[in-house]
Computed example of a mutant assay.
Amino acid sequence: MDENLEEHDEGSRYDDPDAIGSTALYQSLSNLVFFSDDMYLSSQAQNLNLVDQFLMPLEYKVLRELFETDSTPADTHFLLAQSQMWIFAAYELLRNWRQRASEIIKWHANHGLEQKLASLKERHKADLHFGLRIRIEQIERVLNDEAIVAELDRQRRHIYIPFARLEWVRVSLAKHEVSGNPKQAALMPGYGRINSWCGSLDFELENGKYSMGYINRRDIADSIRDLDFTAEPPDDETIESFDAFMSGKGFEPD
């Protein structure tokens, strides 16, 4: 990074890209249960990591040109397109994992894991299917070690807030509406401003009642890199408070 950006970066909450491990995003995702033994989830995580490594230098390049020319750089349009695609990909990957984790937790609670396993094996017998084989092996892992269920629940709580923020901006970008409120049009879907610290494009988070601030692609990537599954996950009160803030529940305008 050049000297001008280094000086500007004294108060930044963003790490210099050179200080971030080239596979840090992938490694963090690999700590999620099932990622290490599912080649398809792992491949998606690698793709997300590779594009993140491509976009960070581009974001700083756009920021540098903005400082130098005081006008919107031409690459901003390409950055906007790539940022939105990355956000969509990150959302789908985490949504996929959350759905799988939730299903395992539900089947375990309902004593339905054995029945689900038998059903998958019957389908796999009729048609050799790599995806089904992976699901079968994952359920077998859980049946052999039910502590995995508790770990899935912990990890699901850990990613609850980062995923909710990701989902919020994804709905605005993709559906042009407020998350959880399809009748409420998004304020400025797809409009992003160049973040003055890292160059990533800031998108406003709003719920139709008030603004909750801004989020950019780099924020999302950092929130994944910073996941610490050894720490205590958010409790019910924290999650409920977060949900109320995001939805505007109980808010009365002046």
Results as ranks from 00 to 15, higher is better:
228 D>Y: 04
165 R>T: 10
197 W>F: 15
9 D>L: 15
182 P>L: 08
184 Q>C: 04
231 A>N: 09
161 I>M: 09
228 D>A: 02
27 Q>W: 04
40 Y>P: 03
193 R>V: 11
66 L>D: 06
84 Q>A: 11
114 E>Q: 14
91 Y>H: 12
133 R>N: 10
128 L>H: 11
67 F>S: 06
11 G>F: 15
61 K>Q: 13
176 H>M: 13
68 E>L: 10
74 A>T: 10
151 E>Y: 07
141 R>H: 10
202 D>A: 02
75 D>G: 02
95 R>K: 13
204 E>Q: 14
239 I>R: 07
64 R>E: 07
76 T>C: 02
107 W>G: 05
31 N>D: 08
229 F>L: 03
62 V>Y: 01
130 F>N: 09
41 L>Y: 07
201 L>Y: 03
58 L>T: 11
132 L>P: 05
232 E>S: 12
30 S>C: 09
132 L>Q: 11
88 F>C: 03
166 L>H: 08
75 D>Y: 01
69 T>D: 00
16 D>F: 08
75 D>R: 03
66 L>V: 06
250 G>E: 07
150 A>E: 10
142 V>P: 04
119 S>Y: 08
209 K>C: 05
135 R>A: 12
182 P>H: 00
93 L>H: 12
191 Y>Q: 13
130 F>I: 13
149 V>H: 03
113 L>P: 10
95 R>T: 05
58 L>F: 01
64 R>I: 02
92 E>D: 11
86 W>S: 15
198 C>E: 08
42 S>M: 07
67 F>R: 13
16 D>R: 15
229 F>V: 05
114 E>K: 12
196 S>I: 12
48 L>P: 04
198 C>A: 01
86 W>V: 06
140 E>T: 03
239 I>D: 01
138 Q>V: 01
213 G>L: 10
156 R>E: 07
231 A>G: 00
17 P>T: 04
94 L>M: 14
178 V>K: 04
166 L>N: 02
199 G>W: 02
245 F>V: 14
79 L>R: 03
27 Q>N: 15
106 K>Y: 10
55 L>P: 05
156 R>F: 01
178 V>I: 11
90 A>C: 03
177 E>S: 06
219 D>Y: 04
47 N>W: 09
131 G>H: 13
10 E>N: 06
182 P>Q: 00
240 E>F: 06
196 S>F: 00
93 L>F: 07
49 N>F: 01
106 K>F: 08
11 G>N: 14
145 D>C: 08
17 P>A: 01
